[in-house]
Design a protein around this nucleic acid. Structure first.
Lengths: 218, 218
DNA sequence: GAAACGTTGACGCCGAGTTGACGGCCGGGC
DNA sequence: GCCCGGCCGTCAACTCGGCGTCAACGTTTC
């Protein structure tokens, strides 16, 4: 899942980003509202973790712009003041969820996962297809009931394939969703990850190649 | 679907073209407005992806000429400045849709598909005829409920036949719509693609030959 | 500091796309 | 009725880009 963290406090921003990366998400970080809008133009994020009190462009305004664009990205708003008024204000602006500071990181992670599920309408909490069971919350994968330990990248790629629900996903789309913006589109890291995934998932093969198009599950 | 990409930035142009080709479209690329007008004279495009800020002839002028010619080609305008004024100007000139730079590629692909659907009035998102079900978005084909894996060319040709809705389509028309301008009209690539299509689609035959005219579905 | 992980370069294979060749079918001309 | 020629289907061969894989290097993690 591709996530943008917008937070002007550098230490907090990095902490959140690292934690989300550990959950196998691809995370970009910016420190003000202007930069956030730029990134949101270029990349197709699933979730935006948005601090409310931002320099350059206020969090509320970022939220407003997103809502007006009918962006598919879900917004989790972070607010320093934890009172009810702010909560209502945030949701009215188009935020999808709201978390008062300070917060426990697991709380944030859980809400981000939940929002990611809502981005694809009616997606169940546990993805299941072709004998593969993937639990985003526990970060676990089972093949025909057998536990399969996966690395972060492998997990992220498999999760994207499962979200596509059997449709083909191009290497570029996988790069977009499972890698952050530093990824180099001209290399073959995706191929390698697919290779390792196939090995760990065992026989019979479930990750199929659609030549000239991408990969899909079956 | 036949698409013309007009963009003076070479890297961006190629990126867009490649992505659209992966969606089984036939894509030509030119880098200035003059060349665009030449191509539009010669070929029958379904969609034109048109950068606004072009050398030789400005994108606005290309758009004007197209509108005045009552061309069937739909125009997706790309604009650097994302403000409302430009949007209004673009649509007033006859552009059918408008996308501010920078943009995420999937966004562009989605809009191109939507415009292509509008070119044939009232075409549904999923094409279905004679037991063939073709989903352009997922790039999947089913014959009587059975999944049929197709290559890009095969998929493109079948999509054109389905768009014709049972009418005969000549080999020349197929070349025009499913191949880019490098295709050699004196060879028989179309025949070969039809041959493979027939094999993959199985019995009873659905792709019929209308002698002296072309091919049609039934 | 060791082990797991991610990335990169190199290499070989396979299949899609194309092309040339050939043969059957059909219609028209003599 | 016979021959000729165009149209079309099919087979085989070739080319080339995409893809899988091995090995090695740099990086992160515990």
């Amino acid at each position: 899942m591709r996530i943008l963290v917008v937070e002007d406090e550098p230490l907090l921003a990095e902490t959140v980003a690292q934690g989300l990366r550990r959950d196998a998400h691809a995370v970009d970080v910016v420190h003000d509202g202007g930069a956030a809008l730029e990134r949101l133009d270029v990349n197709d994020y699933d979730v935006v973790v948005l601090d409310r009190d931002l320099p350059v462009v206020h969090g509320d305004d970022v939220c407003r712009v997103l809502a007006q664009r009918e962006s598919a990205a879900r917004v989790l708003m972070l607010t320093a003041a934890a009172d009810i008024d702010d909560r209502v204000a945030g949701l009215a602006l188009g935020a999808d969820d709201y978390l008062p500071k300070p917060f426990a990181f697991r709380e944030l992670a859980a809400r981000v996962t939940a929002l990611g599920r809502r981005a694809r309408p009616a997606a169940p909490p546990v993805l299941e297809l072709a004998g593969i069971r993937l639990d985003p919350h526990r970060r676990e994968v089972y093949r025909d009931g057998r536990y399969v330990p996966l690395s972060r990248k492998e997990f992220a790629v498999l999760a994207e394939l499962l979200r596509a629900d059997g449709a083909a996903v191009s290497a570029e789309q996988l790069l977009e969703k499972a890698w952050d913006e530093n990824a180099d589109p001209f290399t073959h890291t995706v191929r390698m990850t697919i290779l390792k995934l196939r090995r760990k998932l065992g026989d019979p093969p479930v990750v199929l190649t659609e030549p000239g198009v991408g990969y899909r599950l079956a």
